[in-house]
């Protein structure tokens, strides 16, 4: 059953990701991006990590596409121009290179999934990865201040 679920989630995630990077309609692209991220949240659930799934759901699947929709509206770019020929060639080449890089993953291992409870994750976050946690908070603060400073309408 978990294999069925994996294949369903993975197939739809890929389909919607491909749709997101190829469609000319930006609103639809943002929406299919959101669906991709939902499905990835489902994959995190399969990995036995509900906390990660919930955070993926909250940040990547909800907040980020909504922000994207906002910026699409504000910059009036409802549709995107099609790619140039050389861009398609380069893109396909890069994608193929990435796949070659990952071909070692095929048939890799048959390990057992260890579920991780939110408590374990939280304790790890605040003990083993405390420095990372603090760096992340500083990064978020900087991003917030930077975004406000950059986006502020200048006088005159």
């Amino acid at each position: 059953m978990s294999l069925t679920a994996f294949y369903a989630l993975a197939a739809f995630a890929l389909v919607f990701a491909i749709f997101a990077v190829t469609t000319a309609n930006m609103v639809r692209a943002a929406f299919s991006l959101a669906i991709t991220f939902f499905l990835i949240a489902g994959l995190y659930l399969l990995l036995g990590s509900p906390a990660l799934a919930a955070i993926q759901f909250m940040v990547n699947a909800s907040a980020i596409p909504i922000m994207t929709l906002f910026i699409i509206m504000m910059t009036q770019s409802r549709s995107s121009a099609g790619p140039r020929t050389w861009q398609i060639a380069a893109g396909l080449l890069a994608a193929a290179a990435a796949l070659v890089f990952f071909k070692g993953a095929v048939g890799h291992g048959d390990g057992q999934i260890t579920p991780v409870s939110p408590e374990t994750l939280g304790v790890n976050l605040l003990q083993a990865a405390l420095l990372l946690f603090e760096v992340a908070s500083v990064l978020l603060l900087l991003a917030m201040v930077g975004a406000i400073v950059l986006a502020r309408r200048r006088a005159g």
């Binding site: 919930a54 759901f57 909250m58 699947a61 909800s62 939110p118």
Partner: peptide, 8 residues
């Protein structure tokens, strides 16, 4: 993770 789910 009920609360996080609700927020999401």
């Amino acid at each position: 993770v009920g609360l996080i789910y609700l927020i999401a």
